[in-house]
């Protein structure tokens, strides 16, 4: 029993490669190609894009033939949670300072785990804030405020 296309490991990988290749090629069309003697900035990315599309197609065909499914379930929840935590950290750093950003990062990312205990996470957040402030702000002298409120700019 072969898996469906959306569960076919190599078909999906090939599709991803081909998409990257095609995308790279398409964007690079805007850059001058030059010629072999005077390679323009568009030469290398276009060649790479085509090669990547080729690898992608080969991988897709092989996936259809072998039909190996994706191993294990997708961890969409931890992936989404961690990504959200990281993005939130980046945005908060520019607006509310280091400490609140770190607290949000630690709590949100810990929530992605299998076990979540409030007390533990609170202690972890505290320790992380102290360590980050110690290493990055006092140790390395990075110019970030611990707390800030900068939404106006």
């Amino acid at each position: 029993m072969k898996p469906g296309l959306l569960d076919n490991r190599d078909f999906l990988a090939g599709l991803l490669f081909a998409a990257f290749g095609a995308g790279g090629f398409w964007v690079a069309l805007a850059y001058p190609f030059g010629d072999l003697q005077q390679m323009g900035p568009g030469f290398f990315p276009r060649a790479l894009g085509l090669i990547l599309v080729g690898f992608g197609l080969v991988t897709m065909v092989r996936g259809l033939r072998s039909g190996v499914p994706v191993e294990g379930a997708w961890g969409w929840f931890p992936l989404a949670m961690l990504t959200a935590a990281i993005v939130a950290f980046g945005w908060l750093m520019e607006h509310v300072g280091l400490i609140p950003s770190l607290v949000v990062l630690v709590v949100a990312s810990a929530y992605a785990g299998k076990e979540f205990r409030w007390l533990e996470v609170a202690i972890l957040a505290g320790v992380m804030c102290a360590m980050a402030a110690g290493i990055f702000i006092w140790g390395l002298g990075l110019p970030y405020p611990l707390f800030a409120f900068e939404f106006g700019r």
């Binding site: 935590a85 990281i86 950290f89 770190l102 990062l105 990312s109 299998k114 979540f116 533990e120």
Partner: peptide, 18 residues
């Protein structure tokens, strides 16, 4: 591990921001 991975992320994120 539930203590470790948030700590990894803290270092990774502050490092990248810097």
């Amino acid at each position: 591990y539930r203590w470790l991975f948030p700590a990894i992320l803290v270092f990774a994120c502050v490092g990248n921001f810097s």
